[in-house]
């Protein structure tokens, strides 16, 4: 019983983390058809930015809540700047090329950004666990939960709700839906596709960086964190269906629960299970759970 509830809570927390990282990736893919490897860099930059923020507020001895908000703000600000630079500076040059080529462009960008991190923050690791420690724990029966994890799940739920609301009920969201549906027609009807692209990419980048920022207190902020995250996010998005927000949510839940189950029951297959599920889903539904294949016409 304890294992079951532990699997569930661990899975949920892990899923929350995965969703926060994956939602930006899937948004960018849905609108721009770009599978963005540099999303891992956004995550890493967000985490490093958050670590810096935590350093500032611990030194200044501010209250924890302000520190937490500073951390989020720092992450998002970095995502904003990075997103604008990449979209305006690099991606703009390759729009219209093969999807696969654009993947490689983002891969090149990712490699460059890996070293930019070293230039800015140096090769050493950062610990930013203070927010997690000051948040404390809560006990429910035999189960001990970190309050920080609960906040994480709440943030993920908030993002999911926000994304749903924004796409369904705001002007910009409906604009996005038309661009996703048919880029040319949207452009023909006067939608400023260029602007939509920039805004989408920047939002995606901010979400990626936010993922890194909220995770920073839970991990050692060190070189190479983006490398691991990007394949995890790919797995989530591939399972749910690339470009689908609800797909990212379901994909994150599936991966989260499966991994938690593996960790508690068969720790040897912890990593195997994630990519195993991904391969399985791709075999049965090549385009993921929430995206349908489009038949070709002659």
């Amino acid at each position: 019983m304890l294992t079951a509830s532990a699997i569930l809570t661990d899975g949920l927390v892990y899923a929350a983390y995965l969703f926060i990282v994956a939602i930006g990736l899937t948004l960018i893919f849905g609108v721009m058809k770009i599978l963005n490897v540099a999303h891992g860099s956004f995550y890493a930059f967000g985490a490093y930015g958050a670590a810096t923020a935590v350093g500032i507020y611990t030194n200044a001895d501010w209250p924890a809540a302000i520190g937490f908000l500073l951390m989020l703000a720092m992450g998002m600000a970095i995502g904003l700047v990075l997103g604008i630079i990449l979209e305006r500076g690099i991606l703009r040059l390759v729009y219209g090329k093969d999807e696969v080529i654009i993947v490689l462009v983002t891969y090149a960008t990712f490699l460059i950004l890996e070293d930019v991190i070293v230039l800015i923050w140096g090769p050493q690791s950062y610990a930013a666990y203070q927010p997690m420690v000051s948040a404390g724990n809560i006990e429910i029966g035999e189960l001990v939960l970190s309050n920080y994890d609960i906040v994480l799940v709440a943030i993920a739920a908030l993002l999911a709700g926000l994304a749903y609301w924004a796409l369904k009920f705001t002007r910009y969201g409906r604009l996005l839906t038309t661009v996703i549906f048919d880029r040319e027609t949207a452009a023909a009807f006067g939608v400023n596709v260029t602007l939509v692209y920039t805004v989408t990419f920047v939002i995606g980048a901010m979400l990626g960086a936010l993922g890194g920022a909220v995770m920073a207190p839970k991990i050692a902020v060190t070189l190479g964190i983006g490398v691991e995250v990007i394949v995890l996010a790919f797995a989530v998005v591939a399972i749910g269906g690339m470009g689908s927000i609800e797909g990212a949510l379901v994909g994150a839940l599936i991966v989260g629960i499966c991994r938690a189950a593996a960790v508690h029951l068969v720790p040897q297959i912890e990593l195997f299970v994630i990519y195993g599920v991904m391969a399985l889903v791709l075999v049965v539904r090549p385009y993921g759970l929430f995206v349908r294949a489009q038949p070709r016409k002659i």
Binding site: L35, P267, E270, L271
Partner: peptide, 24 residues
């Protein structure tokens, strides 16, 4: 049966499965 990024992604998943097995 796969093309484009789906081909790339599925090959990626399969190689990561092997990685996951070997690491453990």
């Amino acid at each position: 049966r796969y093309r484009e990024i789906f081909f790339a992604m599925l090959s990626l998943a399969l190689s990561m499965i092997l990685y996951g097995v070997l690491v453990k």
